[in-house]
Design a protein around this nucleic acid. Structure first.
Lengths: 200, 200
DNA sequence: GTCTATAAGAGGATAGAC
DNA sequence: GTCTATCCTCTTATAGAC
């Protein structure tokens, strides 16, 4: 019970740091201190271990996104989620997987990633709809679309930051996104709250 | 002269498809048909070959970005660049490299990636400044920031699309970004062109 | 420039004893 | 459940002949 947990914990870290393809069973053994026999007892293949570790990494991340579902002021929720502190230069535990050829090509490994993003998308859409209902966002923007845009800003921000080895581009990207959201407030500059406009 | 070119061409393809770490010299040999001896004659190490192939992939991509520098209507240039057809499910030849642990950890391999993004950023900033000068974009948005935001939308769009194995999220993300840009036009709905407002 | 041979080490397990 | 031994393939070259 101890070894299993240690292996999972270690594999989750390594998948975040190095992805799947570039993480060897040996690396997991060495970092975790768990022996060969135990390892293959608990997880018959590297892929089994990776799948379990991936699920854990996703479970780590999803609670943050449910911040978007909250009940406070919608734009405040959106801003809080966007501006949440992140380990920028490490990148996204989940998004990273999409660039690993061995994950991309394995439907079983890719599926949890797809599900995770789909779930976060739902949360974004809810927050954006709430913002429109609260009169904080023009009612002619498409929440589904915009949700993808904002998720992309986060995922792409990591890419830019890692390229420069500097969190700056990530911070600029999300700040710019917020600027645009504010520019898309209904009354040109500052949004009047508590007005529930509901017309096309 | 023939082999060298074939190797470069093949390595460039493989780096796009599978990244650096997961592309073996053997794979390059087999796909290119070039023999072992020739390969190590032209490129002493895998890294040397990768560096050359990466420079080529970057050179492939930069011309497109210079579309942003053009001299036509700024918003039209921006829209054209954003909406340019892309091989969405393959991802970005350059951005992909940031997720490869062996590239990330190698300053020599990462440097060209950083330079490429920096260059694209310059083009974006120019286009956005032009749009502001042309009265197509509010003069209170920060072009540097917004440039990062829009680059992130592209890079992140790839991530979302690959996760779902569907270009849809990419297309939604960029369309949503355009919506926001339009919402950030100075006169609330449609931008009056050829007015060179220059005040804070 | 290109070919074939060789090789140390890592990757990803399997086997069987304790 | 854990340990040690063993195995076969792939990776990334190197060596030397043609």
């Amino acid at each position: 019970m101890e070894s299993r947990e240690l292996l999972l914990e270690t594999m989750s870290e390594l998948m975040w740091e190095r992805g799947y393809a570039d993480t060897s069973p040996r690396a997991v053994r060495e970092r975790s201190g768990v022996g060969q026999g135990s390892m293959y007892h608990h997880f018959p293949t590297k892929r089994d271990l990776a799948l379990a570790a991936l699920e854990r990494n996703i479970a780590d991340l999803l609670p943050a996104a449910s911040e978007l579902d909250g009940s406070g002021d919608p734009m405040a929720r959106i801003e809080a989620y966007l501006m949440r502190p992140r380990d920028v230069l490490k990148g996204c535990k989940v998004g990273r997987m999409t660039q690993d050829p061995q994950v991309r090509e394995d439907p079983v490994l890719l599926a949890p990633v797809a599900r995770a993003f789909a779930q976060v998308h739902v949360s974004w859409v809810k927050a954006l709809r709430d913002a429109i209902a609260a009169g904080e966002l023009r009612d002619d923007v498409d929440p589904e679309r915009l949700a993808h845009t904002l998720m992309a800003v986060i995922q792409g921000g990591y890419v830019l930051a890692i390229a420069q080895q500097d969190p700056g581009p990530f911070d600029a990207a999300r700040a710019g996104a917020l600027d645009l959201l504010r520019a898309a407030a209904p009354l040109a500059s500052s949004a009047p709250k508590n007005k529930s406009k509901k017309r096309k």
